[in-house]
């Protein structure tokens, strides 16, 4: 995908108080305000039913927000426009490729709709297929394509009309893991190269972290946190985010007089006082036979190649996931000493 970059006009998107109540009274989305800068890639992340797809569909024009909500592309209020007049590019989870057309016809459909004559259409379709390295597939039927190829056709079809913004609804979910990783890189490169404003919906935190300039974490129809991938990972707004984005351990702790009592030991502490829940990531727990604060017994050791994921049980009866180096080997029942840096702990009110 590395040929001549078509640069796109970076169009900002703004949502004002967009809520969605479905007939029957189900509130799929609480009022949401969101500013997306031109050229930014924003990922809506959350479990199914969190409202991320509804938000995307409101931006696309496939759903109308409840009265009072409005959607702006740049300075234009597009709330009243149906999707066919918003000039957006959309990639669907099932790709929605037209089975009655071949690859080139699928890619050229948007141009045909726009009344562009055959010669110029063929030229632009050819250009786009070349950019996606799919020239050889131009005459293939959709059912003769692999999942990854379909995904690229869907992207090409969405981009060839030079949309104002690109919307992607779980575009990688239907693919197997290996392919997903490859395409994730390609999409990332493509989005950066084109400079198009992109909104991407997924339930996969790995995808979100890899692609996003900013992640919008959603749960139960609400935005829980908006931030860069680093923000969301290292400074999660609440235990839900911490748990949804990456793996986290939740420990009971007691803080008083500059000390935090956790896992049966005291560490220096400058944060909140009183009974607390503290969160710590598996990679932030060290194994240290000398300075380790607490002793624990290995109950599971899962070798993952680059690391070994241990589950240990401490003397206080708490269970922790820990990442140990891949080359260290452990047996179930081994005793280890674990160390936690206080500055890697994240305190949450109980």
């Amino acid at each position: 995908m590395s040929r001549d970059p078509l640069r796109f006009e970076p169009v900002p998107v703004r949502l004002n108080a967009c809520a969605k109540t479905f007939p029957g009274g189900t509130r799929a989305l609480e009022p949401i305000d969101l500013e997306i800068a031109g050229g930014e890639t924003v990922v809506f992340l959350g479990p199914s039913g969190c409202g991320k797809t509804t938000t995307l569909r409101i931006i696309a024009g496939l759903e109308q927000p409840d009265p009072g909500g409005s959607v702006f592309f740049g300075s234009e209020d597009v709330t009243a426009l149906p999707i066919e007049r918003r000039n957006v590019g959309m990639v669907f989870q099932s790709y929605a490729l037209f089975p009655n057309m071949d690859v080139a016809q699928n890619v050229g459909y948007g141009l045909r709709v726009r009344g562009i004559d055959r010669r110029r259409r063929d030229a632009r379709v050819g250009e786009m297929l070349a950019m996606m390295q799919m020239e050889a597939l131009a005459r293939r039927r959709i059912d003769q394509l692999s999942g990854g190829q379909r995904q690229r056709v869907a992207l090409a079809r969405a981009l060839v009309v030079r949309p104002r913004i690109l919307l992607l609804d779980e575009p990688l979910t239907a693919l197997d893991a290996k392919l997903r990783d490859g395409l994730r890189l390609e999409i990332d490169r493509l989005l950066r190269q084109l400079g198009i404003t992109a909104i991407y919906v997924t339930h996969d935190q790995g995808e979100a972290m890899a692609l996003a300039d900013r992640i919008v974490v959603m749960s139960g129809g609400r935005v829980v946190q908006i931030g860069t991938p680093r923000d969301v990972y290292f400074r999660p707004a609440d235990p839900f985010v911490a748990d949804f984005v990456g793996t986290t351990n939740r420990l009971q702790a007691q803080a008083a007089d500059g000390r935090l009592h956790v896992l049966g030991a005291d560490v220096p502490w400058a944060g909140a006082t009183g009974p607390l829940a503290v969160l710590v990531r598996p990679e932030d727990v060290r194994l240290d036979a000398v300075t380790g604060q607490a002793e624990a017994k290995v109950t599971t050791a899962m070798f993952l190649g680059d690391r070994t994921r241990l589950v240990v049980e401490t003397g206080t009866g708490e269970t922790l996931s820990i990442d140990a180096p891949g080359r260290a080997s452990f047996a179930i029942g081994d005793t280890v000493r674990i160390a936690i840096d206080p500055d890697r702990l994240l305190a949450m009110p109980l």
């Binding site: 999707i83 066919e84 669907f92 037209f98 459909y109 709709v113 079809r157 969405a158 009309v161």
Partner: peptide, 23 residues
């Protein structure tokens, strides 16, 4: 899955009549 196919066509700018006859 007509609904999704039609949404795909609509996202590319096709109005109802065109979607009906081409998709």
């Amino acid at each position: 899955d007509l609904r999704t196919l039609e949404e795909g066509a609509a996202s590319l700018g096709a109005g109802f009549a065109r979607r009906f006859f081409t998709i």
